[in-house]
């Protein structure tokens, strides 16, 4: 990743993966990727990284934490246990 073109690509990678670059820039990037193995690996692994964190399970609020929040706010009478 020492070439100027590779460094330029690095700046554009997120907009590229998010589909936010113009058609011209997109074509330039894809041309570069067809010739540069390092950048291709970079793009593929970054894309996979995004896929992995977008598809991982999200932490939930534990029921006891939710119950204590209602208590703290004097809303206990409105607390309804969630079906497990």
């Amino acid at each position: 990743m020492g070439h100027d073109e590779c460094r330029h690509l690095l700046d554009e990678l997120s907009p590229y993966l998010d589909g936010e670059v113009s058609e011209t820039v997109c074509a330039e990037i894809e041309q570069h990727l067809s010739d540069c193995e390092n950048c291709r690996v970079m793009v593929d692994t970054l894309r996979k990284t995004v896929y992995l964190y977008r598809n991982m399970p999200q932490p939930e609020m534990p029921e006891q934490v939710r119950e204590r929040l209602y208590k703290k706010l004097d809303l206990t009478e409105f607390f309804l246990p969630q079906a497990s």
């Binding site: 999200q58 609020m61 209602y70 409105f78």
Partner: peptide, 18 residues
Amino acid sequence: DQAACALCIELYGTQVYR
């Protein structure tokens, strides 16, 4: 309105906690 406060928790509590 306390019921509205409770509804607000149900709508946004988990996101704030995360």
